[in-house]
Design a protein around this nucleic acid. Structure first.
Lengths: 142, 142
DNA sequence: AAAATAACTTGTAATTTGCAAGTTAAATTT
DNA sequence: AAATTTAACTTGCAAATTACAAGTTATTTT
């Protein structure tokens, strides 16, 4: 039995979640999709953390395999893939926001990020609704 | 500049948090401390995921270095170290609970774990208060 | 004094990550 | 139509990390 399958059988919610999205690079891709609306391979490459191309390809493949994103060809530019968050992916927003909320107590953020954390703390539901509306609009435009 | 220092300067709250506690084994140690009240090296080794001894030692050292736990000698058995959550460590409960909440939508849990998630969803503040009271009692007993 | 316990450390094989160059399909330019 | 550029990867390989198994050290128990 593969390591992944064995771990799935542990039946622990923390293990389950960590195996699906807990990887550092996976979380950063999800951040870029959720917070910045990024959808294309090249956009993820532009993030300041400098992810390697083989790692990005691998993580996108895993996200799709796990059902957190869907992949489709851009009909206007068939060289491009478009990655879109599913409901399962979007429902990770609370996890992402709690990570940010915690970190904001302990690290120094620039003004833009400080405002984002303020919004998470004061109007988290509103922010989530905005992000969902943005994703719905993107899906309908396709 | 070391990789860790370089990443700290990214000033992103998600990166910051992931670098401190995002590692899979670190999260599992935190789970054992928060949910199960584990405090000793041998107790962490007993978890069903089967962490390697060198990895456990490394993660406990990092948690202490980052200020999420403190280490002290058990005065009654000086072979033992006692690991205790700090406020910084305890304040990760929302992150842990959101991971569990998310996972419970997608994986099958046994009855005990299902009840725990139910409690997180229905009385998260009560559960957090209980855990904090337990940790305070442990600190006072020392 | 000898044996057992608790918490590691060490050496090393296996696996993963990350770098840099290369490949393929599709679009654009010449 | 051919050549070049673009977008998204794949590949080979070095470096780093993980995990296994045995060993070490300090302390307690017998």
């Amino acid at each position: 039995m593969s390591k992944t399958a064995k771990k799935r059988l542990s039946n622990c919610a923390v293990v389950y979640g960590l195996d699906i999205f807990g990887d550092r690079w996976t979380m950063l891709v999800l951040r870029d999709m959720i917070l910045h609306g990024k959808r294309r391979y090249g956009e993820f490459l532009e993030s300041e953390e400098g992810i390697a191309t083989n790692i990005l390809a691998d993580r996108l493949k895993r996200l799709a395999a796990e059902g957190l994103v869907t992949v489709s060809r851009d009909p206007d530019n068939r060289r491009s893939n478009i990655y879109t968050l599913t409901e399962e992916g979007l429902s990770l927003m609370p996890v992402l926001f709690e990570i940010m909320n915690w970190s904001a107590n302990y690290c120094e953020l620039n003004e833009r990020r400080t405002l984002l954390v303020k919004r998470i703390r004061e109007d988290r539901e509103g922010l989530m609704a905005e992000i969902r509306a943005r994703e719905a609009a993107l899906r309908n435009a396709a």
